[in-house]
Design a protein around this nucleic acid. Structure first.
Length: 561
RNA sequence: UGGCCUAUGGUGUAAUUGGCAACACAGCUGGUUUUGGUCCAGUCGUUCUAGGUUCGAGUCCUAGUAGGCCAACCA
């Protein structure tokens, strides 16, 4: 999170303006207000970085507030997952809050509104209320219960709270303006009856406040100075302010709501409803499936908190429609992983190589640098022997000059090892190459300093010594959706665009140093990509997830032909 | 057909608030390299349109156009 000379986004401009208009810096307070009805996704990461970033920038507290006013959808599991994700990103909240902490305060204020004639109990069905709401171009009609006496309202509301009615029998409504051009101001609901246990208040309440009534007042109770939410709440601002007007004390901070555009990402969906659908219908293994755009999915995939934060800061925040290209996210993981991931060798699609002039039964240990980008990472020993594995793609019987890899009669360098020359190959009955016979140049050992070792050979291949190789499961992921905007088609369901081949499980050979890798360890498999150890991995059965491939200019060259 | 919001390269954001349109990604071209990775250099724009104000407009004004949002006892 850099401060200072960096240009400001429009949200920061708003805060700066308030400050220069005399708002006390010490009174700045922000909040991140998730509803615990699902897991946090990459879009939330943006909002988290915005709010907590503001906290860091101005050294102001940031609350983590759970907007838990709907017991029908919310669960403790989600509260725990959200906390874990925010912590993993590295942010520290000032206070853990729950809208449900304010149920009593909200109830007391509702009584005040009733007494002032600004709220009333409506005893119609939701369908009747909806019918009276009017349309954007015509005014609504007042409810027949709109003019109930204060006494009757008080009595009914009390009875609602005491559980004397069934769900849907009555609601509490604010009395505002049935003719407002803003539909939300046409006597919005403040409370509904819900006979459901709440994850925190259990059965203490059977009436629950609606979002609009709870949110602004919660901000006010917590003395949040700036309440940032997404654009679809822009119309709610008038109501947010109206509710605040009813309770605000001039000596206290009056929260200010402002809206920004939510981030959309190419080739995925970020709607909790749709993500839940992917989980429930089994398109993925769970909320933390590495293909999910959830924070927990990205974590399991091998993304780092730093890369997510850098990504969020790079895409910034604004008010216009947007679709952020996933390649930008991939750039940021690569950028970070390039610095921190130890390089190792793993062969994903093995082809056997026999060094015919290397003594049978002999082995030697070669020194290998752990990370050319980080000297402090040190080096390790790698076993070398007569039989090796290389990638199938790295050998061709014949190829043109652009192919820098191994071909019959051609030479390549084995990374950290020797220069070898392909002499012949054997094939099975179907013509598939099953083995390549090579000779090696014993004087060409990497790092030996000999004239032969200094020879320039165009290609360098990664490899694994066959007798020392450790087998491992490798999970290769591709985008979950084939379409750039799967939920951007009015007449087609986003599930139609699911990529059936988004997960490919293969068996690979990895170098023996990987035997001790534990879940969440990250590596660069040289020349192939970044991988991390899956949570299901054990010492008996290693499992790696591909976080992201390396940039592959060879693939581009091939595509052109 | 009412109200609110938005419009800057292929993508996402900037522009000292009226003063040479910038940064990153992606793409393309080269160079370096014991990872076809990294790194380095170069390249890619009529600021939605039309008028207006001004010495000067991405920024201000007017009119249009396009897109998004708003009528859940969801948040």
């Amino acid at each position: 999170m850099s401060e200072g000379s960096k240009s400001l986004n429009f949200i920061e401009h708003i805060v700066e303006e308030d400050l220069s208009n005399g708002f006390a810096k010490e009174k700045l307070r922000f909040r991140f207000p998730p509803e615990p009805n699902g897991y946090l996704h990459i879009g939330h990461a943006s909002s988290i970085c915005l709010n907590f970033g503001l906290g860091l920038r101005y050294k102001a507290p940031v609350n983590l507030r759970f907007d838990d006013t709907n017991p029908a959808k919310e669960e403790q599991e989600y509260v725990d997952a959200i906390k874990r994700d925010v912590e993993w990103l590295g942010f520290k909240w000032d206070t853990e809050c729950f809208a449900s902490d304010y149920f009593q305060q909200l109830y007391d204020w509702a009584i005040v509104l009733i007494k002032q004639g600004k709220a009333y109990v409506d005893s119609q069905s939701s369908a009747e209320i909806a019918a009276q709401k009017g349309t954007p171009t015509e005014a609504g009609k007042p409810s027949p219960f709109r003019e109930r006496s204060v006494e009757e309202n008080l009595e009914l509301f009390q009875a609602m709270k005491e559980g004397k009615f069934k769900e849907g029998e009555h609601v509490l409504r604010a009395k505002i303006d049935m003719a407002s051009s803003n539909m939300l101001m046409r006597d919005p609901l403040m409370y509904r009856i819900l006979h459901r246990p709440h994850h925190r208040t259990n059965t203490d309440w059977c009436i629950y406040p609606m979002y609009d009534w709870a949110h602004g007042e919660s901000d006010y109770v917590e003395q949040v100075s700036h309440s940032f939410c997404t654009l679809e709440f822009a119309m709610h601002r008038e109501l947010y302010d109206w509710f605040l007007d009813q309770v605000v004390d001039e000596n206290k901070v009056r929260p200010k709501q402002r809206e920004f555009a939510r981030r959309n990402f190419s080739h995925t969906v970020v709607s909790k409803r749709k993500l839940l659908q992917l989980v429930e219908q089994g398109f993925v293994s769970g909320w933390d499936d590495p293909r999910m755009p959830t924070i927990s999915g990205l974590r399991r995939r091998g993304y780092t908190p730093e890369s997510l934060i850098n990504f969020a800061n790079t895409i910034g925040i604004a008010k216009r429609e947007n679709v952020v290209d996933v390649s930008l996210l991939e750039f940021h993981v690569r950028e970070h992983l390039n610095k921190i991931a130890p390089r190792v060798m793993a062969v994903l699609d093995p082809l056997k190589v026999v060094l015919t002039n290397y003594p049978e039964g002999e082995e030697e240990w070669l020194e290998a640098e752990n990370n050319p980008e980080d000297e402090a990472a040190g080096s390790r020993q790698l076993p070398f022997s007569r039989e090796l594995y290389i990638e199938k793609d790295d050998f061709k019987e014949e190829a043109n000059r652009k192919f820098f890899r191994l071909k019959l009669g051609g030479e390549v360098r084995l990374k950290n090892g020797y220069i070898i020359k392909a002499e012949s190959c054997t094939k099975d009955a179907d013509g598939n190459i099953t083995e390549v016979q090579c000779t090696y140049d014993p004087k060409s050992k990497s790092g030996s300093g000999t004239e032969e070792s200094l020879r320039k050979v165009k290609g360098t291949l990664h490899w694994v010594s066959a007798p020392h190789a450790v087998s491992a499961e490798v999970r290769l992921y591709d985008r979950l959706f084939m379409d750039e905007t799967p939920d951007g088609h009015k007449d087609r369901d986003f599930l139609e665009f699911i990529n059936k081949d988004s997960l490919q499980v293969i068996n690979a050979f990895v170098e023996p140093s990987l035997k001790n890798a534990v879940p969440e360890d990250r590596f660069q498999f040289q020349r192939t990509g970044y991988f991390n150890v899956d949570k299901e991995s054990t010492s008996e059965k290693l499992i790696f997830n591909r976080t992201v491939g390396l940039r592959d200019s060879w693939a581009k060259i091939q595509q052109k032909n």
